[in-house]
Amino acid sequence: MEKVLIVKNLTKKFKRVAVNQISFEVQKGNVYGLLGPNGSGKSTTFGMLLSTINPTSGEWYWFGEKGTTPKTLKKIGAIIEQPNFYPYLSAEKNLKIVAKIKGIPYSRIDEVLTLVGLLERKKDAFKTYSLGMKQRLAIASAMINNPQVLILDEPTNGLDPEGIIQIRELIAQIAQKGTTIIVASHLLDEIEKVCSHVIVLKNGNALYCGSVEGMTSSMGYFELKCENNDALINALQTMNLFKKIHIQNEVVIATIENDIAAAELNKKLAQSGIYLSMLQKKKESLESQFLELVKKQ
């Protein structure tokens, strides 16, 4: 697998340590979530990788080349913190500036504006835009050079539910084309919906980097229900397949220790005379996995 970005022992000290010796790799074509609570060093990390912040120590490689040069940046599209544009200029003129900097023909402007649905408003000044439109224009601007990597820092910050859905769909659409995406957010269900891989940061340390599934060793849990829950619990306990069994809102929750298929479990329970009215095998949400991981450290 081709590596788009390799980060080694990256550190930034302001008055305190903001990013501490983090290392991770980003593989081509995947959508990465950069997770972490507020102040965990997400934006600082992006800042260093995008050459706006000078690192204290450590190194990184974009497309195999050391550091970040203006040439590298022309292959990347990035949105940081909030959409930044000249407020007095129209969307079109703002994108002309970006196109000029990146060395892209003006013909791309209408294409990306169509992509984010802002073509009719292209002559209007940026300051007249709603927050959702500003955010979409930022995505258009980041997409103008057909980037190999798209970096999004809190792309849904401050948006209403409709805006969040629009942005999410846009990200999914871009990901389908094979663009590598790194998206930072503290909204976990947001990340869960779009990301295949995660990098977890806490207090400037990288706790985990890899696929979402591999984040915990957990195999998930069953949600079960029948006429007599006590008998069900007894039957489950004798199977030695579960590390924890408890009742929550009349539903028996059994956390798996040794994996078993749902059909197999159903069969076994029926053999011992228990007929289920509900059976569901579930994975822990990213949220609970994340909390588990963060708690451990």
């Binding site: 050459s51 706006t52 040439k71 940046l73 990035a78 940081i80 930044n84 544009f85 990146k102």
Partner: peptide
């Protein structure tokens, strides 16, 4: 307007 930062990110040295 934070445009220096944005210009830098866009690839202006």
């Amino acid at each position: 307007n934070r445009m220096f930062k944005q210009n830098t990110i866009d690839g202006l040295s």
